[in-house]
Write a protein that binds this DNA or RNA. Structure first.
Lengths: 206, 206
DNA sequence: CTCCTTTATGACACCCTTGTCATATCCAGT
DNA sequence: ACTGGATATGACAAGGGTGTCATAAAGGAG
């Protein structure tokens, strides 16, 4: 656990340390990150670090928590609580928010990306997909089926998996290219294909 | 470069070392792999290792080469040179071959997966998608468009990207679950959705 | 000014890594 | 049996990492 000593720290020092944490974990995976570099970067003695955090894992978890908080604050005004759009628009919204996040806090996104990359069991256990979020999209699809926007014979789980892998792949690709222009347009194009299908109209009676 | 000394090694020792390499690189990323563990595992002195390979990178590249060779041999009989099926069937075929590869040589697949995970520049440069393969699928789509199987207004690059991310996501997911049953069926289902679209028929005249 | 608690510090022990190199061993040809 | 080149070896240097701990400094209360 983060110690009370850390909490009592004066803001300037606290910020210096947080910046060092952000810097280190946005450049290295958890297992490759080095406390030595962090303390040097923050201009803090090695001993002090261990007075604030019990170990590397501890400071990493704390950092993730801080990031999650900031993300929550940033998205609070953006997320709409009861969507009136189709599941496709909802996915586009998610993509939009992700791009916002990547542009607003690129280092934070980088930290998240590195987390996904990491192979340690400790990280593996945290990366598991949020089942609640998946459930949310399943329900959106079911609602759209009731609305007559999506064919009823389509399996919601399968469809949401499809949309999810596509969105995710787009995000990671564009992140490494560091170019997000036209991304939403591209996603729109892809979703349009999924809606109308690739078959020519005359073949549609299969 | 792999030295001639290594090439001259008697088969038993060579195999022991290769097995150790496979073991180490299937459990650890390149940057986390340890030569110490390798030589201990292979029952070879540390000095000997450096008589065979110039460094870690060298032995890793050699291992990848050996794996590529075996993969080529395994697939030689399976790949059909001039496909008569649609691009979807071709993707299903690729999936099928990947599953075969994962079942036949799970450790090899694991090495490849860890390679993808690795964040070092050295690995980054190797992992870049094969543009030749992408071109191959683009052409398949164009051919299917000529054949009247796929609508002509669909962008081949976009479609192949879609199919690729979906296939890839399925593979990685199932690899971690270590369960490939029903995977082809699932892919078929997804591709069927992509072909006919998610819109109900009465809405198709948009 | 003193005392006591809190905070800061860096040397330390111990672990690991890589790549080198002088030396020992092996083996084949004479 | 001897000899020279090929091969094997592990100690070594140099560097990195983590977490601990005795000690120093600082700061607030009496």
């Amino acid at each position: 656990m983060v110690t009370s000593t850390f909490q009592r720290l004066d803001e300037e020092k606290k910020k210096r340390l947080m910046d060092a944490l952000i810097h280190e974990f946005s450049e290295h995976t958890f297992s490759e990150a080095s406390i030595n570099r962090i303390v040097k970067d923050a201009n803090i003695s090695r001993g002090s670090f261990y007075q604030y955090f019990t170990d590397k894992e501890d400071c990493y978890l704390y950092l993730l928590q801080v990031i999650a908080q900031e993300k929550y604050i940033l998205f609070q005004g953006v997320v709409q609580q009861t969507p009136h759009d189709s599941v496709y628009d909802e996915y586009l919204g998610m993509l939009d928010r992700s791009i916002l996040w990547m542009k607003e806090k690129p280092v934070y996104y980088k930290i998240g990306a590195l987390m996904d990359l990491d192979n340690s069991d400790f990280i593996r256990n945290m990366t598991k997909l949020n089942p609640q979020m998946m459930e949310y999209f399943h329900n959106l699809i079911r609602r759209d089926q009731e609305r007559g926007i999506i064919r009823k014979d389509i399996d919601p789980v399968t469809l949401s998996e499809m949309l999810f892998s596509i969105t995710r792949a787009m995000l990671t690709e564009h992140f490494y290219k560091q170019d997000f222009t036209g991304m939403i347009e591209k996603a729109r194009k892809i979703f349009a294909i999924i809606q109308t299908g690739t078959q020519p109209k005359e073949n549609n009676h299969v």
